[in-house]
Amino acid sequence: MALEKPYADIPGTTIFDASQSRKGYHLNMFCMSLMKAPNRERFKANERAYLDEWPMSEAQKQAVLARNYNDMIELGGNIYFLAKIFSTDGQSFQYAAALMTGMSQEEYARMMLEGGRSPEGNRRTGEKPEEKIEEKK
């Protein structure tokens, strides 16, 4: 019997479940390695060479090189692990969150100051199409 995924219809959201975790193990463990300063230095010096030390898929490596966080999440990345990449880049959680929504950091920060993204229309895929959040790739 397949594992139940009652969260699959939440729009714009990837739950880090068993399937994602299996897919993303090496990607996330690469991220974890960036907790150590010498590894951060080696990564920054030659990102491709550093990534090639990990048994990650080519798509995962390309997503890291492009800093495409939505792709990394789709390919099994978990945001708390991916945070090691944008921390290495000297960027904040708000920077990364803005990037994933396709908004500028200023627009995103303003949305948060105005109370954040409303749950209205964002609970279920297709519940209120005119307010559905755009999937940015």
Binding site: P11, T101, R117
Partner: peptide
Amino acid sequence: MSHQLQGPRAGLINAAF
């Protein structure tokens, strides 16, 4: 409390919840 840090729905806040 409410927060979402990932994906296109990042920034979700639900004060009523």
